[in-house]
Amino acid sequence: QTVHVKGVQYHFPNPEEAVKFALKVAKDLGGRVEFHGDEIHVE
Rank of each mutant, 00 (worst) to 15 (best):
Q1P: 10
Q1R: 15
Q1E: 05
Q1I: 15
Q1G: 09
Q1W: 15
Q1F: 15
Q1Y: 15
T2W: 09
T2Q: 04
T2D: 04
T2R: 06
V3F: 01
V3G: 00
V3P: 00
H4L: 13
H4G: 03
H4K: 09
V5E: 01
V5P: 00
V5W: 09
K6Q: 13
K6A: 14
K6C: 11
K6V: 07
K6G: 15
G7T: 04
G7M: 04
G7V: 02
G7I: 02
G7D: 07
G7N: 07
G7H: 06
V8A: 09
V8D: 06
V8S: 07
V8P: 01
Q9H: 09
Q9F: 09
Q9G: 05
Q9V: 15
Q9S: 12
Y10P: 00
Y10K: 03
Y10T: 03
Y10N: 02
Y10W: 07
Y10A: 02
H11W: 15
H11E: 07
H11T: 10
F12S: 00
F12H: 02
F12D: 00
F12M: 03
F12V: 01
F12Q: 01
F12Y: 03
P13Y: 10
P13I: 12
P13W: 11
P13Q: 13
P13F: 10
N14C: 04
N14M: 05
N14Y: 06
N14I: 06
P15W: 15
P15F: 15
P15G: 10
P15L: 15
P15N: 12
P15Q: 14
E16V: 11
E16F: 11
E16D: 11
E17A: 12
E17P: 02
E17D: 12
E17W: 06
E17K: 05
E17F: 05
E17H: 06
E17V: 07
A18L: 01
A18F: 02
A18Y: 00
A18E: 00
A18I: 00
A18S: 03
A18R: 00
A18K: 01
A18M: 01
V19Q: 09
V19I: 15
V19Y: 15
V19N: 06
K20W: 08
K20C: 09
K20L: 11
K20V: 08
F21P: 01
F21L: 02
A22S: 03
A22V: 02
A22G: 02
L23M: 13
L23G: 05
K24Y: 07
K24I: 08
V25I: 13
V25E: 05
V25N: 04
V25R: 05
V25W: 10
V25A: 10
V25F: 06
A26G: 03
A26E: 02
K27C: 09
K27G: 10
K27F: 12
K27D: 09
K27R: 11
K27W: 10
D28I: 13
L29V: 09
L29K: 05
L29N: 07
L29D: 04
G30Y: 06
G30F: 07
G30R: 07
G30C: 06
G30A: 08
G30E: 06
G30M: 08
G31N: 03
G31P: 00
G31W: 13
G31T: 04
G31Q: 04
R32W: 15
R32C: 05
R32L: 07
R32F: 11
R32Y: 13
R32P: 02
V33P: 03
V33Y: 03
V33N: 01
E34I: 15
E34M: 13
E34Q: 11
E34D: 07
E34T: 15
E34S: 13
F35N: 04
F35I: 11
F35H: 06
F35W: 13
F35T: 05
F35A: 04
H36V: 13
H36D: 08
G37S: 06
G37T: 05
G37D: 09
G37F: 06
D38R: 10
D38C: 11
D38V: 09
D38H: 12
D38T: 12
D38P: 08
D38Y: 09
D38K: 11
E39F: 08
E39Y: 08
E39N: 10
I40H: 02
I40E: 01
I40G: 01
I40Y: 05
I40T: 02
H41F: 14
H41Q: 04
H41P: 01
H41N: 04
V42E: 01
V42S: 00
V42M: 02
V42L: 04
V42F: 03
V42A: 01
E43N: 13
E43T: 15
E43H: 14
E43F: 15
E43C: 11
E43V: 15
E43L: 15
